[in-house]
C-alpha cells in the first residue's frame, strides 16, 4: 500500500505491507533507526514516537493507519551539534547507559511534558482536580511506560526535571 507520512516535518511516501508497524516503517523503510524495537508489543516504550504531538508506542500501530499524520521521532528532536535541551540533559545527567531505550525515553519525556502542561493528572496525583506538581513521583509514574534495564532511572528523572523548563513545561497547548 502506498502511503504518505509527514516525518520530522518532511513528507515521505512509501509503499508498505499493510502489516508493517509504524515502527518498522520508520526503521526499515525510512532508515530512521533512532526509534528502537525492544519488545514489539507495547511493553517497553523504546519505540515511542510523537504522532500529531502525542506520544504513542509506534510498534503497536500500523503504518497504513497514519496517512497524513505528523510523526516526530528522536531524529527530529535534535542531532549531534544541535541537541535539544532534553537530549543535552540526558548526556549531562548520564540518563542512559547502553542507550537502547534512550530515544524512547526522550521522546516520551517530550510528550509527557506536554501532557503535564495541559494539566493532565496521573495515578500518583493526590487531587485529580488540582494542577499537579512537577515532582519526582509524578515524573516517575508518567515515565513508567519506558523501561530501562540498565536502570538509569535516577539520571533520566534528573535530566527531565532539569530540561523541562526549556522544553515548554507549563505552556498549555490550545485545545485541539
Amino acid at each position: 500500500m502506498k502511503i504518505t507520512l509527514s516525518v520530522n516535518g518532511e513528507g515521505r511516501s512509501l509503499d508498505v505491507d499493510p502489516r508493517t508497524s509504524l515502527l518498522d516503517a520508520l526503521r526499515d523503510h525510512l532508515d530512521l533507526t533512532g526509534s528502537k524495537k525492544g519488545c514489539d508489543h507495547g511493553q517497553c516504550g523504546a519505540c515511542t514516537a510523537l504522532v500529531n504531538g502525542r506520544r504513542i508506542n509506534s510498534c503497536l500501530t500500523l503504518a497504513v493507519m497514519h496517512e497524513g499524520d505528523e510523526i516526530t521521532t528522536i531524529e527530529g528532536l535534535g542531532e549531534p551539534g544541535a541537541l535539544s535541551p532534553l537530549q543535552k540533559a540526558f548526556v549531562r545527567h548520564d540518563g542512559y547507559q547502553c542507550g537502547y531505550c534512550t530515544p524512547g525515553q526522550i521522546v516520551s519525556a517530550k510528550g509527557m511534558i506536554a501532557e503535564f502542561s495541559n494539566g493532565w493528572p496521573s495515578h500518583v496525583s493526590e487531587d485529580l482536580e488540582a494542577v499537579p506538581d512537577f515532582s519526582e513521583a509524578e515524573i516517575k509514574e508518567r515515565m513508567s511506560g519506558n523501561l530501562c534495564r540498565c536502570s538509569a532511572y535516577p539520571g533520566i528523572c534528573a535530566a527531565i526535571r532539569d530540561a523541562a523548563p526549556d522544553e515548554g513545561l507549563g505552556e498549555r497547548e490550545a485545545a485541539e
Binding site: 524495537k37 535534535g78 542507550g99
Partner: peptide, 19 residues
C-alpha cells in the same frame, strides 16, 4: 566526564546490530 558517545545515543544516531 560525560560519555563521549552520548550525543549519538541521545539523538538516535548510535547504530545497534539490527540497524
Amino acid at each position: 566526564m560525560d560519555r563521549p558517545e552520548g550525543a549519538l545515543k541521545v539523538s538516535g544516531r548510535a547504530t545497534y546490530a539490527a540497524e
